[in-house]
Amino acid sequence: MQIAVVEDDDGVGDALVEALGTHGHEAVRMRRGSDLLLGHRAMDAVILDLGLPDADGLQVLRQLRVVSDVPVVILTARDDERSVVRGLRGGADDYLVKPARLAELLARLDVVTQRRRAAGPSAAEKKVTEGDVVVDLDAREVEVAGAPVALTAKEFELLEVLVTRPGAAVSRQQLMDAVWGDAYVAISRTLDVHMTGLRAKLGRPGLISTIRGYGYRWGT
């Protein structure tokens, strides 16, 4: 499992990386919240300190949750009830206070990652049907009224993000992060061009609706 260790204290961070490595995990050390926001897509889980040099960890967590549901375990010296509540309500899967026992940290990481895997899409959901539009996520194929539709790689990736969240509002930031890798760097105009192409190829007005000032929604 690839785990981001977001910790600016070298003593704590290096010890965590070494300990996780001895237990078969690949730990990636990150010292700043911005490192996590740029590199979270490759991670299976995150260990997040709250006292970071570039931003408060709770703010980093809120930004991360806009674009990702990667499991996050907060590991911090803050042991007051307010911080714990804010961390869990802000999207953390678990909260540990330093110094934490390694065995407990590993156990909690296992629990939160297994929980997320169990909540993943079933095999039946790998093929999505909406009216006469069929999206096969495994084969990366799309049919409209029984006829195949050729999409570019980016168009299909956009479609995949939308169809796996039917009826949900998906923000422009979530789409840019999922397809281009960073919601904070990707050029918004690029998204507009690909979305226009995707809609034209599907030929079903209203199937992908625009939520003004926010993003898009799949489903009629």
Rank of each mutant, 00 (worst) to 15 (best):
M176K: 01
A145G: 07
E155H: 06
G215Y: 06
R217T: 11
I187G: 10
G90R: 03
A42W: 13
V135W: 11
L198H: 01
I47Y: 06
R32P: 13
R108C: 12
S171G: 02
V161W: 10
A168D: 07
A42R: 03
L102N: 02
G131F: 05
G90N: 05
G213T: 04
V133K: 00
V111I: 15
V97C: 02
W218K: 00
S34V: 14
V193I: 15
R189K: 14
T196F: 15
V28C: 06
R78A: 13
H194C: 05
I3H: 00
D44L: 09
A147G: 06
L202P: 15
Q2N: 11
K126L: 12
Y216H: 02
L50A: 05
D49E: 09
A178T: 14
Q173Y: 13
R204L: 13
E26Q: 07
I3R: 00
A183Y: 13
Q59V: 14
D56H: 12
L102I: 12
E141R: 10
D49K: 00
A200Q: 06
L191M: 11
G87Y: 07
D14I: 14
D54C: 01
G219A: 01
Q174S: 02
A55I: 14
L106F: 08
T129I: 14
A178P: 13
I74G: 00
V85M: 08
R31G: 08
I47Q: 02
L88N: 02
V142Y: 03
V128C: 04
G33W: 06
Q174E: 13
D132Y: 11
A19L: 09
A150S: 06
E130D: 07
R86Q: 10
A150C: 06
E26I: 15
D80W: 09
L191D: 01
S68W: 10
G181I: 12
L159Q: 01
L38K: 01
E81Q: 07
V149T: 06
M30V: 06
A147K: 03
V85R: 02
G215I: 08
R29L: 13
P148S: 00
A118D: 15
